[in-house]
Amino acid sequence: MLTRRLVFVTGKGGVGKSAVAAALASVAAADGKRVLVCEMDDKGSLAAYLGREELQFVPTEISPNLFAMAMNTEDSLREYIRLFLRVPIIGSLTPLAKIFDFVANAAPAVKEILAVGKLCYEVRERHYDIVIVDAEASGHFVAQVSAPDALASLVRIGIVADQTKWMSDLLHDPHVSTVLAVVTPEEMPVVETLELRERLAKATPIDFAGVVINRMPAVIDDAGVADPTSVDSAPRSSEQSAISMSMSVCAWLAERRANAERYATQLADSFELSNVETLAEASPTEHAPSAITAHLSREVRRVLDGRE
């Protein structure tokens, strides 16, 4: 996974894409790689998981070797015009950007190509060993990553048409680029992940590395605990109601784990087993974003060590 140079981390909203991307980036940087991690939507969750208020288009060095940025299509357009069109830009781009924003909304794939183009550019120029993308949620992601293919079929001439080729080449090369889907063991995320793989395969020949199950609840050792007859052995009858409450608590946690296992099994059945990895849920005391990143980094490390 971390041997590729462009890794897209996607999944349904709320499954922890940003946290997993932050953890992967931290682990790769700890291994001595020069890492760029990029948030594609403007929610700012990646910043939170990296312990920052916000991220800019210009990468910030979070820790040695770990750089983070937030995608911004206006800045990307500015850079693009400067690098490729050699049109001098004097002062603000705002009036142009407004018009551009409009056409970009109207002309499909233009906005997406600027975002994906920037990532591909960083990969091509080898400014970093690995670019990890905290990508859009599954639905928008397919449109984004297949933008060069889509645009190539719509625009046959012009600079964009020439530009889409090298981007597609990078994105389609399984040694360079791959997609990792994050999922939580719940119904909708699982359904959406299965759909994502299908839709992605139809839209573009990008490699699909596999699935990471995030927030897997711990196993509850409930042997004998949930058996109501065992209440009789409680030392004093006054404690019986407390004990039976404790048993309900235990049963609730066990059911939560059982539900999660059911969805994990469904995923494992649908994907090849070796391509599904599981990251344990953080303990309730580790709920701050930076604590979650630290926890997930340990989990990612455990998984990577296990694969060797």
Binding site: L85, V103, V155, I159, V160
Partner: peptide, 12 residues
């Protein structure tokens, strides 16, 4: 300014 850039990016 728009058409200069738009033409070059997208093609007429």
């Amino acid at each position: 300014p728009f058409f200069v850039v738009a033409d070059r990016i997208l093609g007429a």
